[in-house]
Each structure stands twice: as structure tokens, then as C-alpha cells.
Nucleic acid binder design. Structure first.
Length: 109
DNA sequence: GCCATGGCTAGTA
DNA sequence: GCCATGGCTAGTA
């Protein structure tokens, strides 16, 4: 596994239950802000193998990005179970549920 | 070549 | 709705 992929996996695994991150946010935390599609690819192909909480990643509008019915319903079900509200338009309030990753930034903490 | 994005524009209402 | 973006897995040879 490549370093960037490794970091993406770690970031995703660090999202706490009941919170979500966007694809771009995960990419940014992993060190490559424009690699959102790469995050998609990793989620798509590595979720099962590495037991990723794939359901905690949504698009920048706070929407469930998956189109395929079964997975989509599953994602909604798990998020709801974790206490994440999904409104009637299928949206999640990112202000409220976005996970922030601890920065360990000694300069600013 | 893939991909479950994201940001911006055109065009409708 | 269009299209630039980007890192690499899966799978073949």
C-alpha cells in the first residue's frame, strides 16, 4: 500500500461514530486536498478488506454519494443508528456532524 | 483506466 | 451539466 493510501485509510478509520467527513476533507487530511476522487477509489476498493467505516464519508454538500440502492440504504441506516440526522432532502448538516481530525500541530495548537 | 468529487458555468424560471 | 483533477489497485502477462 502506498503512503498516501495508508494515510487515507488511517484518516477514515479515525472518524468517530456519529460523525462524517467529506471526500475532499479526507484527502486534505491525508495531505493531498485535490485527491478527493482518489479517496473515492480507495473507499470503493478497500473498504471491505480494511474494515473502513465507509458510511462516514459523504460529499461536500452533505449528501450520500452512493447511487446504488442497497448500499445507499445501508449507509443511511448505519448513520441513523449512529445518531446522524439525515433530513428529508437526504442531507446531513455538516456544521453539526463533520468530524474534525486532531492536528497535533505544535505551532498553533 | 478507474472513480461514491468538487467547483464553476450555463441556462431556466 | 461539464470537465480538470490525481494517485494507484486490480489484473494481465
Amino acid at each position: 500500500m502506498q503512503p498516501f493510501t495508508q494515510r487515507v485509510v488511517e484518516v477514515i478509520r479515525a472518524i468517530p461514530p456519529g460523525r462524517v467527513m467529506t471526500y475532499g476533507q479526507v484527502a486534505g487530511e491525508a495531505g493531498s486536498p485535490r485527491a478527493a476522487r482518489q479517496v473515492v477509489r480507495i473507499l470503493h476498493s478497500m473498504s471491505a478488506k480494511y474494515e473502513l467505516p465507509w458510511h462516514r464519508v459523504v460529499n461536500v454538500k452533505g449528501e450520500i454519494a452512493i447511487q446504488e440502492d442497497e448500499s445507499r440504504f445501508l449507509q443511511i441506516a448505519i448513520l441513523t443508528e449512529e445518531g446522524v440526522d439525515i433530513d428529508s432532502n437526504g442531507r446531513i448538516d455538516l456544521e453539526k456532524y463533520r468530524a474534525s481530525v486532531p492536528h497535533f500541530d505544535t505551532k498553533y495548537n
